[in-house]
């Protein structure tokens, strides 16, 4: 198994719903301690992994990959063993009915999102948004109350599984996929810069809170924000999506540094690493929106990996894209830019 796959699987095992940083950040740190010596956790729960340059007085490079995932917090225990939840991040209502979930209470257990069978449904009714769904736990009301506390995290259940042609599916590939690419690159790279991989918190929950704090603390000379992007799919236009299996993509945007972006494109060409481009004029939908205006200003570029079914129970991605992104980031860390 490649290092990036190994790291990815470790990250996917740790639920990372916003609000629970004090539980999950130490677990992330533990999982990574076999690969890295310098790992720190800041006040909001960002995990920063550091590798020193082989040079003295080197410039600082920061690779940001948010580590939080979409999910839910328990808001109420209902009669008959059902839970109500509040959504954390943009939950796709179309993927909820009959999905398996993991209720992350002190003793975690599996449960299922209720659905209405065709025998009983009105065909054209709207799907329930997350705050309206019922999660079926199978427990009696009393037992459920003793097992679950309001605020416990709930995530989509499901282990990563292989598809054909080097693709994989799993919940929470957004954004543990990019985190794994960045960490594997850091693990393998001979760093020319003092290099930080910032596993930032609270991207999905809004406000880019983790990245704002983490980037400001580190004050890098250059930041590369790594997040997933839309793979080409039914209903996704070519101009807003990238192709799976054709490598990562770099974003062309008014919010990022064009020189840095072009340098990355040249580097990929020179090293024969597959790289696509996508125009995201004024909204990158990621921490890249705010990276440049953090602290005293940071030269920023955005690189992404294509996934299908974003924010669903089974996001799908290509392992070759993951490997290409790792290679590209390792070259950047190695000072080729």
């Amino acid at each position: 198994m490649t290092v990036e796959r190994e790291i990815l699987e470790k990250l996917l095992k740790i639920p990372t719903v916003s609000g629970h940083e004090s539980e999950y950040a130490p677990k992330i740190k533990d999982a990574l301690s076999v690969y890295f010596d310098e790992i720190s956790i800041d006040g909001v729960g960002n995990v920063a992994v550091f590798k020193k340059s082989k040079n003295t007085n080197a410039k600082k490079l920061l690779i940001d990959a948010h580590i939080d995932q979409i999910g839910f917090l328990v808001s109420k225990t209902e009669e008959d063993g059902f839970l109500r939840v509040a959504s954390i991040g943009g939950i796709d209502a179309r993927t909820l009915p009959s999905s398996d979930v993991l209720v992350c209470s002190d003793a975690p257990f599996f449960a299922v999102v209720s659905s209405t069978p065709p025998h009983l449904s009105d065909s054209d009714s709207k799907l329930a948004i997350a705050s309206e769904i019922l999660i079926d736990t199978g427990f009696s009301s009393d037992e459920l109350k003793s097992r679950v506390r309001i605020g416990d995290a709930v995530v989509f259940a499901g282990l990563p599984a292989d598809l054909a042609c080097g693709a994989i599916c799993s919940p929470a590939l957004d954004n543990k996929l990019c985190a794994a690419a960045a960490l594997a690159a850091l693990y393998e790279a001979e760093c020319e810069y003092d290099t930080y991989v910032l596993l930032s918190v609270r991207e999905e929950s809004g406000g880019f809170v983790g990245a704002r704090v983490g980037i400001a603390e580190i004050k890098p000379d250059m930041a590369i924000v790594c997040d997933v992007n839309f793979a080409r799919a039914y209903g996704a236009q070519n101009r807003e999506s990238i192709e799976r299996g054709k490598g990562p993509s770099v974003s062309i945007s008014a919010l990022t540094d064009r020189v840095l972006t072009n340098d990355i494109i040249s580097l990929a060409k020179q090293k024969e690493i597959l790289l696509q481009t996508v125009v995201e004029a004024s909204d990158l939908g990621s921490n890249a929106n705010i990276a440049a205006i953090t602290a005293e200003g940071v030269r920023t570029a955005a690189i992404s990996l294509p996934i299908t079914n974003m924010h669903s129970t089974s996001e799908c991605a290509s392992l070759s894209d993951l490997c290409d992104m790792k290679r590209l980031l390792a070259e950047i860390m190695g000072g080729k830019i």
Binding site: R94, S115, C169, F230, E240, T308, S314
Partner: peptide, 26 residues
């Protein structure tokens, strides 16, 4: 309503697949 994002098994080769559609952000 119970299809999107669900895993399926296809054909005699029991090939794994995932039911997909337009990403909801789009």
């Amino acid at each position: 309503s119970v299809l999107l994002g669900k895993r399926v098994t296809v054909g005699d080769g029991r090939v794994r697949g995932v039911i997909s559609s337009t990403p909801f952000h789009l």
